[in-house]
């Protein structure tokens, strides 16, 4: 009954007989057109909107600036598992998201820029060559929400820096989107075609998408949740992602939304996989909301941290389902040595 229920709920997806009828090329085209491209389009649009908003609203506390930054950051989380192709050209993804920042390079770099107050870095060219630890959404969070930075340097310089950061995000996200639209989408969709050296077979193209799901689950489980979770003896709430702006749990939910969309496309035609992913992701989403704890502060509460550990456990289960069952369904299970090399 349960399976039927899930199948009905997810009835938007056509039910097929099995993986053999899902042509790899069709699958790649579906994911590219309905998952990757719209999400990168949103990334570029929100990036441009952030730059536009910063022109008239550059004060750290300005709600218009914060809102635009939040929307842009949301869009980034929605593509943060798609780490291949245009996002990796010239370290673009790292310049948008220098995270996790295990050595505190971002606040250090930002402090340096603010104390120095060199106007030359406020131009697009000048800012683009600054340390990538000082670029992107995470650096901008310090500027907008970090108490330490609210008074560092002059208010004019802070304003200029916010505009430079926003402008940089706009140009980098536009470049990624443009490369996807103008070339990489075609490269991916023509996986296995004569002369395609990036994807030498259709299976390699599918494997790239399959790997993205695994990458996303790993980032969310190990970085977004395990980092603040730490150990029972030593929880690390200070390591929660985007803690200053209170977005830690929001990022878990946004990434789960994106991963569920991708998993649904990849497992289309397998009701059992669709059901397992659906139930798992639903649980993670509902349990994350139920925490009522936007920054995982309750990792220090011996009673409540169990709830967070359980979310992490379900994500690990989803990783296992993806790696083993989905991999075998798609026929792209990586070899023992190829899987996670050393």
């Amino acid at each position: 009954m349960k399976r039927l229920f899930v199948a009905l709920v997810l009835g938007l997806l056509p039910i097929r007989a099995g993986a053999e009828t899902t042509e790899h090329a069709t699958l790649i085209a579906t994911v590219t057109d309905h998952h990757i491209l719209p999400r990168y389009a949103a990334l570029a649009e929100t990036g441009a909107a952030l730059a536009e908003a910063s022109k008239a609203h550059c004060e750290a506390g300005d709600p218009a600036l914060r809102t635009a930054w939040g929307k842009a950051f949301d869009a980034w989380i929605g593509v943060s598992h798609l780490r291949f192709g245009p996002s990796e050209t010239d370290n673009r993804a790292f310049s948008l998201a220098f995270w996790p920042d295990s050595r505190g390079k971002t606040p250090k770099a930002l402090r340096g820029l603010l104390l120095k107050g060199d106007e030359a870095i406020l131009t697009p060219e000048g800012f683009a060559i600054q340390s990538i630890a000082a670029q992107g959404y995470y650096a901008m969070e310090y500027l907008l929400y970090g108490p330490e930075f609210a008074t560092l340097g002059t208010s004019e310089f802070r304003c200029g820096l916010a505009q430079a950061m926003a402008g940089n995000i706009a140009s980098v996200t536009a470049a990624i989107h443009e490369d996807w639209v103008k070339g990489y989408a075609e490269t991916l969709k023509t996986a296995g075609a004569e002369g395609n050296l990036v994807y030498q077979s259709e299976a390699e193209g599918v494997q790239e998408l399959f790997k993205a799901l695994g990458t996303g689950l790993q980032i969310t489980a190990d970085m977004r949740i395990l980092r603040p979770l730490g150990s029972f003896e030593r929880p690390r709430p200070d390591r929660a992602e985007a803690r200053l702006s209170g977005r830690s749990v929001r990022h878990v939910i946004l990434s789960v939304d994106a991963l569920e969309e991708l998993s649904g496309m990849l497992s289309e035609g397998s009701p059992s996989l669709v059901m397992q992913f659906g139930e798992g992701f639903d649980y993670v989403r509902a349990a994350s909301i139920a925490l009522d704890d936007p920054v995982f502060a309750s990792v220090t509460d011996s009673g409540r941290r169990l709830n967070i550990e359980t979310i992490k456990g379900v994500l690990d289960d989803l990783r296992e389902i993806a790696a083993v069952e989905l991999g075998s369904y798609l026929g792209v299970v990586a070899g023992f040595n190829a899987l996670d090399g050393d």
């Binding site: 370290n91 990538i132 790993q218 190990d222 970085m223």
Partner: peptide
């Protein structure tokens, strides 16, 4: 590549 056992095998410093 910098790794830390707290984050499994995640790579922490690729850009640097």
């Amino acid at each position: 590549i910098e790794t830390h056992p707290d984050y499994g095998r995640a790579k922490l410093n690729i850009p640097m």
